[in-house]
Amino acid sequence: MSSTEQGTSSAAPAEPTTAPESAAAPEVPESFYYVHGKDKVVHKVSAGALQHSALIHGMISNLGYTEEQAKANPFPFENIDGDILQMVVDWCNQHKGKPTPPEDTNLPKQKEKLFDLVLAVNYLEIKELLTYCCKQVAMMVKGKSPEEIREIWMIPTDAEDEAAEKEAKKRAGKEAAGETAAAAGDAK
């Protein structure tokens, strides 16, 4: 279905290409786009809110989708968890057309979520939100010792890291040996 719509869009006149600019002029009706994450839940977001994401802004500024085309072609972000994408969309909506404050205290407190959010925001190129997130990550370890930092950020020591690597190599070696043995068995 989407392919036919895309086909019509390329044939359609180039007149709506100015659509994303409409955010700046309030009298022009706002255009919306659709995004979904790993969970396939589709979010409807205004072009104005999406301007925060340099990646999406770059994608939509040359598309010239009509409302129907946009609805039928949500941007798939399979690498982003649904709840994380929800956070990103909420943030973009809250800060639509507004100057961003010097600090943001509404970021997730759970480090797993925060790290996921950092990766998503970095991928979507949302500069301000990335700044807030990185600041919060840095604050997590302020005044902490190397041992405490290792624990908070769950970083293995060099020795543990080497041991894990060795283990992995060993396992890979065994598997390879197993495979060759199996292959040899097959050959017989």
Binding site: K111, E112, F115, D116, V118, L119, N122, L130, T131, C134, K135, V137, A138, M139, V141, K142, G143, K144, W153, M154, I155
Partner: peptide
């Protein structure tokens, strides 16, 4: 959970930027 060590360079740079001297 993504490991902080595997974060893109830009992210790590930003984290360092917000850390103080003692943290670094």
């Amino acid at each position: 959970m993504p490991s902080i060590i595997e974060m893109p360079e830009l992210v790590l740079e930003k984290i360092i930027e917000f850390s103080d001297f003692k943290s670094v």
